[in-house]
Design a protein around this nucleic acid. Structure first.
Length: 422
DNA sequence: TCTGGGGTCCTAGGACCC
DNA sequence: TCTGGGGTCCTAGGACCC
Protein backbone atom coordinates (compact mmCIF):
# COMPACT_ATOMS: atom_id res chain seq x y z
CA UNK A 1 0.00 0.00 0.00
CA UNK A 2 1.32 3.37 -0.90
CA UNK A 3 1.52 6.18 1.58
CA UNK A 4 -0.46 9.19 0.49
CA UNK A 5 -1.68 12.20 2.41
CA UNK A 6 -3.91 15.06 1.35
CA UNK A 7 -3.51 18.44 3.04
CA UNK A 8 -6.19 21.10 2.64
CA UNK A 9 -6.32 24.59 4.03
CA UNK A 10 -8.45 27.66 3.69
CA UNK A 11 -6.85 30.56 1.84
CA UNK A 12 -6.58 33.67 4.02
CA UNK A 13 -9.04 31.97 6.32
CA UNK A 14 -10.49 34.73 8.51
CA UNK A 15 -10.61 37.28 5.71
CA UNK A 16 -12.33 34.73 3.43
CA UNK A 17 -14.94 33.99 6.10
CA UNK A 18 -15.98 37.66 6.28
CA UNK A 19 -16.32 37.67 2.51
CA UNK A 20 -18.92 34.92 2.57
CA UNK A 21 -21.32 37.25 4.34
CA UNK A 22 -20.26 40.48 2.62
CA UNK A 23 -19.76 39.89 -1.10
CA UNK A 24 -18.84 43.55 -1.55
CA UNK A 25 -15.59 42.70 0.22
CA UNK A 26 -14.42 40.66 -2.76
CA UNK A 27 -11.35 42.21 -4.34
CA UNK A 28 -11.02 44.68 -1.46
CA UNK A 29 -8.09 44.57 1.01
CA UNK A 30 -9.12 43.21 4.42
CA UNK A 31 -7.31 42.79 7.73
CA UNK A 32 -8.50 40.95 10.83
CA UNK A 33 -7.27 42.04 14.27
CA UNK A 34 -6.19 39.98 17.27
CA UNK A 35 -8.11 40.02 20.52
CA UNK A 36 -8.16 43.53 21.95
CA UNK A 37 -7.69 44.87 18.40
CA UNK A 38 -3.96 44.85 19.14
CA UNK A 39 -2.31 43.47 16.05
CA UNK A 40 -3.00 42.05 12.62
CA UNK A 41 -3.54 38.28 12.56
CA UNK A 42 -5.05 37.75 9.12
CA UNK A 43 -4.93 39.52 5.77
CA UNK A 44 -6.60 39.10 2.43
CA UNK A 45 -4.27 38.77 -0.57
CA UNK A 46 -4.84 42.44 -1.43
CA UNK A 47 -3.72 43.45 2.08
CA UNK A 48 -0.64 41.24 1.83
CA UNK A 49 0.19 42.90 -1.49
CA UNK A 50 0.11 46.29 0.24
CA UNK A 51 2.95 45.11 2.49
CA UNK A 52 0.91 44.77 5.68
CA UNK A 53 2.72 42.25 7.86
CA UNK A 54 1.42 39.33 9.87
CA UNK A 55 1.53 40.17 13.59
CA UNK A 56 2.13 43.84 12.92
CA UNK A 57 0.65 46.17 15.59
CA UNK A 58 -2.54 47.76 14.32
CA UNK A 59 -1.50 51.31 15.19
CA UNK A 60 1.69 50.83 13.21
CA UNK A 61 -0.12 49.65 10.08
CA UNK A 62 -2.78 52.30 10.40
CA UNK A 63 -1.30 54.79 7.90
CA UNK A 64 -1.24 52.18 5.10
CA UNK A 65 -4.67 50.93 6.12
CA UNK A 66 -6.27 54.34 5.96
CA UNK A 67 -4.51 55.40 2.80
CA UNK A 68 -5.71 52.29 0.96
CA UNK A 69 -9.14 52.05 2.56
CA UNK A 70 -8.38 48.62 3.93
CA UNK A 71 -11.43 47.13 5.65
CA UNK A 72 -10.73 46.27 9.30
CA UNK A 73 -12.45 43.60 11.42
CA UNK A 74 -12.13 42.44 15.01
CA UNK A 75 -11.79 38.69 15.53
CA UNK A 76 -15.07 36.80 15.75
CA UNK A 77 -14.18 33.38 17.12
CA UNK A 78 -17.72 31.98 17.41
CA UNK A 79 -18.12 32.65 13.68
CA UNK A 80 -14.65 31.33 12.77
CA UNK A 81 -15.21 28.22 14.81
CA UNK A 82 -18.55 27.49 13.21
CA UNK A 83 -17.20 27.79 9.66
CA UNK A 84 -14.18 25.71 10.65
CA UNK A 85 -16.45 22.90 11.83
CA UNK A 86 -18.32 22.96 8.50
CA UNK A 87 -15.02 22.93 6.59
CA UNK A 88 -13.76 19.86 8.46
CA UNK A 89 -17.13 18.12 8.14
CA UNK A 90 -16.94 18.65 4.39
CA UNK A 91 -13.37 17.30 4.18
CA UNK A 92 -14.47 14.32 6.23
CA UNK A 93 -16.83 13.30 3.41
CA UNK A 94 -13.78 12.45 1.29
CA UNK A 95 -12.04 9.98 3.59
CA UNK A 96 -12.83 8.23 6.86
CA UNK A 97 -9.25 8.86 7.97
CA UNK A 98 -9.19 12.53 8.86
CA UNK A 99 -7.05 14.73 11.08
CA UNK A 100 -8.33 18.11 12.19
CA UNK A 101 -5.00 19.86 12.42
CA UNK A 102 -6.06 23.42 13.13
CA UNK A 103 -8.90 25.86 12.66
CA UNK A 104 -8.18 26.11 8.94
CA UNK A 105 -6.12 23.02 8.05
CA UNK A 106 -6.77 19.33 7.81
CA UNK A 107 -5.18 16.12 6.56
CA UNK A 108 -6.76 13.06 4.97
CA UNK A 109 -5.06 9.70 4.64
CA UNK A 110 -5.78 8.57 1.09
CA UNK A 111 -3.17 5.82 0.98
CA UNK A 112 -5.72 3.15 0.11
CA UNK A 113 -6.96 4.89 -3.03
CA UNK A 114 -6.29 2.97 -6.21
CA UNK A 115 -7.04 3.93 -9.79
CA UNK A 116 -7.88 7.44 -8.76
CA UNK A 117 -6.69 10.46 -10.71
CA UNK A 118 -5.23 12.33 -7.74
CA UNK A 119 -5.19 15.72 -9.39
CA UNK A 120 -8.85 15.37 -10.27
CA UNK A 121 -9.60 14.16 -6.76
CA UNK A 122 -7.91 17.19 -5.22
CA UNK A 123 -9.87 19.44 -7.56
CA UNK A 124 -13.08 17.76 -6.48
CA UNK A 125 -12.29 18.44 -2.80
CA UNK A 126 -11.52 22.06 -3.57
CA UNK A 127 -14.65 22.60 -5.67
CA UNK A 128 -16.89 20.95 -3.10
CA UNK A 129 -15.69 23.16 -0.24
CA UNK A 130 -16.18 26.22 -2.42
CA UNK A 131 -19.61 25.17 -3.61
CA UNK A 132 -20.91 24.27 -0.15
CA UNK A 133 -19.28 26.94 2.01
CA UNK A 134 -18.03 29.66 -0.31
CA UNK A 135 -14.53 29.22 1.09
CA UNK A 136 -11.48 29.08 -1.22
CA UNK A 137 -8.98 26.35 -0.34
CA UNK A 138 -5.81 24.78 -1.76
CA UNK A 139 -4.86 21.13 -1.74
CA UNK A 140 -1.51 19.31 -1.61
CA UNK A 141 -1.12 15.54 -2.08
CA UNK A 142 2.13 13.66 -1.33
CA UNK A 143 3.62 10.55 0.36
CA UNK A 144 4.21 12.28 3.73
CA UNK A 145 2.42 14.97 5.72
CA UNK A 146 5.43 17.28 5.48
CA UNK A 147 5.53 16.94 1.68
CA UNK A 148 1.74 17.35 1.41
CA UNK A 149 1.95 20.64 3.29
CA UNK A 150 4.78 21.73 1.07
CA UNK A 151 2.80 20.78 -2.05
CA UNK A 152 -0.07 22.87 -0.79
CA UNK A 153 2.26 25.82 -0.31
CA UNK A 154 3.38 25.58 -3.92
CA UNK A 155 -0.22 25.13 -5.08
CA UNK A 156 -1.08 28.46 -3.44
CA UNK A 157 1.56 30.36 -5.42
CA UNK A 158 1.58 28.58 -8.76
CA UNK A 159 -0.87 29.68 -11.46
CA UNK A 160 -0.40 26.41 -13.29
CA UNK A 161 -1.40 24.30 -10.28
CA UNK A 162 -4.86 25.90 -10.03
CA UNK A 163 -4.83 25.37 -6.29
CA UNK A 164 -4.05 21.64 -6.37
CA UNK A 165 -0.62 20.02 -6.52
CA UNK A 166 0.24 16.31 -6.45
CA UNK A 167 3.86 15.50 -5.56
CA UNK A 168 4.51 11.81 -6.08
CA UNK A 169 7.36 11.10 -8.52
CA UNK A 170 10.88 11.48 -7.06
CA UNK A 171 12.04 13.78 -9.84
CA UNK A 172 9.00 15.95 -9.35
CA UNK A 173 9.55 16.07 -5.58
CA UNK A 174 13.21 17.00 -6.03
CA UNK A 175 12.33 19.84 -8.38
CA UNK A 176 9.71 21.13 -5.93
CA UNK A 177 12.04 20.97 -2.91
CA UNK A 178 14.63 23.00 -4.78
CA UNK A 179 12.20 25.91 -5.06
CA UNK A 180 11.43 26.07 -1.33
CA UNK A 181 13.68 27.86 1.13
CA UNK A 182 14.54 25.92 4.24
CA UNK A 183 12.66 28.26 6.58
CA UNK A 184 9.42 27.51 4.74
CA UNK A 185 9.52 23.83 5.64
CA UNK A 186 6.93 22.78 8.25
CA UNK A 187 8.73 22.58 11.61
CA UNK A 188 11.71 24.76 10.64
CA UNK A 189 11.25 28.10 12.38
CA UNK A 190 13.36 31.23 12.39
CA UNK A 191 16.08 29.96 14.70
CA UNK A 192 16.58 26.67 12.93
CA UNK A 193 16.53 28.40 9.54
CA UNK A 194 19.34 30.72 10.66
CA UNK A 195 21.33 27.82 12.04
CA UNK A 196 20.93 25.79 8.85
CA UNK A 197 21.83 28.70 6.63
CA UNK A 198 25.04 29.12 8.60
CA UNK A 199 25.86 25.54 7.59
CA UNK A 200 25.07 26.35 3.94
CA UNK A 201 21.73 24.55 3.95
CA UNK A 202 19.37 27.00 2.27
CA UNK A 203 16.73 24.99 0.41
CA UNK A 204 14.32 22.22 1.39
CA UNK A 205 16.21 19.97 -1.03
CA UNK A 206 19.52 20.60 0.73
CA UNK A 207 17.84 19.87 4.06
CA UNK A 208 16.59 16.53 2.73
CA UNK A 209 20.19 15.62 1.80
CA UNK A 210 21.90 16.23 5.17
CA UNK A 211 22.98 13.11 7.04
CA UNK A 212 20.93 11.79 9.94
CA UNK A 213 23.54 12.49 12.62
CA UNK A 214 23.76 16.11 11.54
CA UNK A 215 19.98 16.50 11.69
CA UNK A 216 19.75 14.88 15.10
CA UNK A 217 22.63 16.89 16.51
CA UNK A 218 21.43 20.30 15.39
CA UNK A 219 17.65 19.91 15.14
CA UNK A 220 16.93 17.13 17.69
CA UNK A 221 14.90 14.04 16.83
CA UNK A 222 12.08 16.31 15.69
CA UNK A 223 14.33 17.68 12.95
CA UNK A 224 15.43 14.19 11.97
CA UNK A 225 11.80 13.26 11.37
CA UNK A 226 11.36 16.33 9.18
CA UNK A 227 14.40 15.37 7.09
CA UNK A 228 13.09 11.84 6.60
CA UNK A 229 9.65 13.09 5.66
CA UNK A 230 11.21 15.37 3.04
CA UNK A 231 12.84 12.24 1.60
CA UNK A 232 9.40 10.67 1.31
CA UNK A 233 9.68 8.42 4.37
CA UNK A 234 6.58 8.91 6.54
CA UNK A 235 7.32 9.48 10.24
CA UNK A 236 3.96 10.80 11.36
CA UNK A 237 0.53 9.22 11.05
CA UNK A 238 -2.74 11.07 11.16
CA UNK A 239 -4.00 12.06 14.59
CA UNK A 240 -7.57 10.98 14.11
CA UNK A 241 -8.64 11.20 17.74
CA UNK A 242 -7.41 14.49 19.22
CA UNK A 243 -5.46 13.67 22.39
CA UNK A 244 -6.69 15.15 25.68
CA UNK A 245 -4.95 18.41 26.53
CA UNK A 246 -2.16 18.26 29.11
CA UNK A 247 -2.57 21.87 30.11
CA UNK A 248 -5.38 24.36 29.57
CA UNK A 249 -4.83 28.09 29.60
CA UNK A 250 -7.16 31.08 29.35
CA UNK A 251 -5.62 34.53 29.31
CA UNK A 252 -6.55 37.93 27.93
CA UNK A 253 -5.15 41.40 27.68
CA UNK A 254 -7.38 44.05 29.16
CA UNK A 255 -9.10 46.74 27.11
CA UNK A 256 -7.74 49.31 29.56
CA UNK A 257 -5.20 49.14 32.41
CA UNK A 258 -6.48 47.47 35.56
CA UNK A 259 -5.25 48.59 38.98
CA UNK A 260 -7.67 47.17 41.56
CA UNK A 261 -7.70 43.68 43.04
CA UNK A 262 -11.48 43.64 42.66
CA UNK A 263 -11.28 43.89 38.87
CA UNK A 264 -8.51 41.32 38.69
CA UNK A 265 -10.67 38.97 40.73
CA UNK A 266 -13.49 39.40 38.22
CA UNK A 267 -11.28 38.73 35.24
CA UNK A 268 -9.56 35.75 36.86
CA UNK A 269 -12.97 34.32 37.80
CA UNK A 270 -14.09 34.58 34.18
CA UNK A 271 -10.91 32.90 32.89
CA UNK A 272 -11.07 30.14 35.48
CA UNK A 273 -14.70 29.50 34.55
CA UNK A 274 -13.63 29.09 30.94
CA UNK A 275 -10.75 26.74 31.83
CA UNK A 276 -13.05 24.60 33.98
CA UNK A 277 -15.58 24.34 31.19
CA UNK A 278 -12.89 23.23 28.71
CA UNK A 279 -11.67 20.74 31.28
CA UNK A 280 -15.13 19.23 31.72
CA UNK A 281 -15.61 19.11 27.96
CA UNK A 282 -12.66 16.75 27.66
CA UNK A 283 -13.87 14.84 30.73
CA UNK A 284 -10.79 15.50 32.81
CA UNK A 285 -9.82 16.69 36.28
CA UNK A 286 -6.81 18.73 37.27
CA UNK A 287 -4.58 18.90 40.31
CA UNK A 288 -2.85 22.23 39.82
CA UNK A 289 -3.85 25.79 39.03
CA UNK A 290 -1.65 28.78 38.24
CA UNK A 291 -2.75 32.41 38.16
CA UNK A 292 -0.57 35.06 36.57
CA UNK A 293 -0.83 38.83 36.12
CA UNK A 294 1.46 41.28 34.43
CA UNK A 295 1.90 44.88 33.43
CA UNK A 296 2.39 46.23 29.90
CA UNK A 297 5.93 45.26 28.89
CA UNK A 298 5.86 47.68 25.97
CA UNK A 299 5.65 50.66 28.32
CA UNK A 300 9.23 51.01 29.40
CA UNK A 301 8.59 54.12 31.49
CA UNK A 302 6.06 52.34 33.73
CA UNK A 303 6.85 50.11 36.71
CA UNK A 304 6.87 46.48 35.54
CA UNK A 305 5.65 43.42 37.40
CA UNK A 306 5.22 39.82 36.31
CA UNK A 307 3.80 37.72 39.09
CA UNK A 308 2.39 34.20 39.26
CA UNK A 309 1.22 31.71 41.86
CA UNK A 310 0.77 27.96 41.48
CA UNK A 311 -1.48 26.07 43.86
CA UNK A 312 -1.63 22.29 44.27
CA UNK A 313 -5.20 21.05 44.77
CA UNK A 314 -5.99 18.52 47.49
CA UNK A 315 -8.20 16.37 45.23
CA UNK A 316 -8.48 16.26 41.42
CA UNK A 317 -11.41 18.42 40.34
CA UNK A 318 -13.16 20.09 37.42
CA UNK A 319 -15.64 22.07 39.50
CA UNK A 320 -15.79 25.74 38.54
CA UNK A 321 -16.60 26.68 42.13
CA UNK A 322 -13.65 24.86 43.59
CA UNK A 323 -11.21 26.12 40.97
CA UNK A 324 -12.44 29.70 41.36
CA UNK A 325 -11.94 29.39 45.12
CA UNK A 326 -8.25 28.55 44.65
CA UNK A 327 -7.81 31.06 41.84
CA UNK A 328 -9.02 33.80 44.22
CA UNK A 329 -6.42 32.77 46.77
CA UNK A 330 -3.81 32.87 44.01
CA UNK A 331 -4.69 36.30 42.66
CA UNK A 332 -4.83 37.82 46.14
CA UNK A 333 -1.36 36.44 46.84
CA UNK A 334 0.24 38.00 43.78
CA UNK A 335 -1.63 41.31 43.58
CA UNK A 336 0.37 44.45 44.37
CA UNK A 337 -1.22 47.89 44.47
CA UNK A 338 0.27 50.70 42.43
CA UNK A 339 0.77 48.80 39.17
CA UNK A 340 -1.15 49.12 35.91
CA UNK A 341 -1.95 45.53 34.94
CA UNK A 342 -2.38 44.72 31.27
CA UNK A 343 -3.04 41.02 31.29
CA UNK A 344 -4.07 38.12 33.50
CA UNK A 345 -4.39 34.42 32.92
CA UNK A 346 -5.17 31.05 34.42
CA UNK A 347 -3.42 27.77 33.64
CA UNK A 348 -4.63 24.39 34.82
CA UNK A 349 -2.18 21.52 34.84
CA UNK A 350 -1.57 18.01 36.01
CA UNK A 351 -4.61 16.86 34.10
CA UNK A 352 -6.02 13.33 34.35
CA UNK A 353 -9.16 11.48 33.32
CA UNK A 354 -12.24 12.50 35.33
CA UNK A 355 -13.05 9.01 36.55
CA UNK A 356 -10.81 7.34 39.09
CA UNK A 357 -10.71 10.20 41.58
CA UNK A 358 -8.52 9.36 44.51
CA UNK A 359 -10.48 10.51 47.58
CA UNK A 360 -9.00 12.33 50.54
CA UNK A 361 -10.27 11.83 54.08
CA UNK A 362 -10.08 15.55 54.86
CA UNK A 363 -12.19 16.38 51.84
CA UNK A 364 -15.16 18.50 53.04
CA UNK A 365 -16.65 19.18 49.63
CA UNK A 366 -19.82 17.41 48.56
CA UNK A 367 -18.54 16.27 45.17
CA UNK A 368 -21.84 14.73 44.15
CA UNK A 369 -23.58 18.10 44.50
CA UNK A 370 -20.82 19.96 42.66
CA UNK A 371 -21.01 17.47 39.80
CA UNK A 372 -24.77 17.88 39.48
CA UNK A 373 -24.48 21.67 39.54
CA UNK A 374 -21.73 21.67 36.88
CA UNK A 375 -23.75 19.36 34.64
CA UNK A 376 -26.71 21.71 34.91
CA UNK A 377 -24.60 24.78 34.14
CA UNK A 378 -23.00 23.09 31.14
CA UNK A 379 -26.43 22.16 29.81
CA UNK A 380 -27.80 25.68 30.27
CA UNK A 381 -24.70 27.19 28.65
CA UNK A 382 -25.08 24.90 25.66
CA UNK A 383 -28.74 25.74 25.21
CA UNK A 384 -28.73 29.44 26.00
CA UNK A 385 -25.17 30.60 25.46
CA UNK A 386 -22.12 30.49 27.71
CA UNK A 387 -22.34 33.16 30.40
CA UNK A 388 -26.02 32.50 31.10
CA UNK A 389 -24.95 31.37 34.58
CA UNK A 390 -22.01 33.07 36.30
CA UNK A 391 -20.05 32.75 39.50
CA UNK A 392 -20.74 35.89 41.56
CA UNK A 393 -17.10 37.00 41.76
CA UNK A 394 -17.10 37.49 37.98
CA UNK A 395 -19.05 40.73 38.58
CA UNK A 396 -21.10 42.47 35.90
CA UNK A 397 -19.46 45.72 34.84
CA UNK A 398 -16.34 44.23 33.29
CA UNK A 399 -14.35 47.40 32.67
CA UNK A 400 -11.43 45.07 31.96
CA UNK A 401 -13.09 43.42 28.95
CA UNK A 402 -11.06 43.42 25.77
CA UNK A 403 -11.55 46.03 23.13
CA UNK A 404 -13.36 44.99 19.94
CA UNK A 405 -14.22 48.05 17.95
CA UNK A 406 -14.85 46.37 14.61
CA UNK A 407 -17.27 43.59 15.53
CA UNK A 408 -19.39 41.50 13.20
CA UNK A 409 -22.52 39.44 13.87
CA UNK A 410 -22.27 35.73 14.55
CA UNK A 411 -24.11 35.16 11.30
CA UNK A 412 -24.39 31.42 11.65
CA UNK A 413 -24.92 30.89 15.35
CA UNK A 414 -26.52 33.05 18.04
CA UNK A 415 -29.56 35.18 17.24
CA UNK A 416 -29.03 37.47 20.22
CA UNK A 417 -25.62 38.49 18.90
CA UNK A 418 -27.18 39.65 15.67
CA UNK A 419 -29.71 41.73 17.60
CA UNK A 420 -27.02 43.28 19.80
CA UNK A 421 -24.91 44.33 16.86
CA UNK A 422 -27.81 45.99 15.10
C1' DT B 1 -3.90 55.77 23.17
C1' DC B 2 -2.64 51.36 20.62
C1' DT B 3 1.71 45.36 20.44
C1' DG B 4 -3.07 38.11 20.66
C1' DG B 5 -3.94 33.54 22.54
C1' DG B 6 -3.32 28.63 23.10
C1' DG B 7 -0.88 24.76 22.52
C1' DT B 8 3.18 20.75 21.76
C1' DC B 9 7.63 18.42 22.19
C1' DC B 10 12.57 17.93 23.42
C1' DT B 11 16.83 18.56 26.11
C1' DA B 12 19.92 19.67 29.77
C1' DG B 13 20.82 19.82 34.32
C1' DG B 14 19.86 19.32 39.20
C1' DA B 15 18.11 16.53 43.06
C1' DC B 16 17.86 12.33 44.81
C1' DC B 17 18.40 7.25 45.30
C1' DC B 18 21.03 2.81 45.86
C1' DT C 1 44.47 16.25 45.88
C1' DC C 2 41.47 12.74 45.83
C1' DT C 3 36.33 12.50 45.15
C1' DG C 4 32.01 5.64 41.30
C1' DG C 5 28.42 4.31 38.50
C1' DG C 6 23.92 4.01 37.20
C1' DG C 7 19.35 5.14 37.44
C1' DT C 8 14.81 8.12 37.88
C1' DC C 9 12.17 12.18 38.27
C1' DC C 10 11.32 16.95 37.86
C1' DT C 11 11.78 21.58 36.03
C1' DA C 12 13.19 25.40 33.22
C1' DG C 13 14.05 26.90 28.94
C1' DG C 14 14.06 26.71 24.07
C1' DA C 15 12.20 25.51 19.84
C1' DC C 16 8.17 24.92 17.04
C1' DC C 17 3.03 25.23 15.37
C1' DC C 18 -1.51 27.86 13.96
Amino acid sequence: MTNLFLHADINNCFASIFRIFNPELNGVPIVVLSNNDGSIIARSQEAKDLGIKMGQPYFEARPIIEKNQVRVFSSNYPLFHDLSTRFHDTLGMFSPHQEIYSIDEGFLDIGGFYNVDLKQYGQKVKETVYKWLGLPICVGIAPTKTLAKLANRIAKKSKKAQGVLVLKEPAHIEAALKTISVGDVWGIGRKYAEKLQAFGVTTAWELSQVNDAFAKKHLTVVGLRIVKELRGVPCADLEIEPPAKKGICTSRSFGQPVTSLEELREAVTAYTTRCASKLRKQKSNCLQITVFIHTNRHKENEEQLYNCKTIQLPVPTNSTLELVHYAMIGVAAIYRPGYKFKKAGVIIDDIRPAQAVQGNIFDRIDRGKHLELMNTIDLLSKKMGSGIVKVASEGINHNWKMKQDYGTPCYTTRMEDILIVR
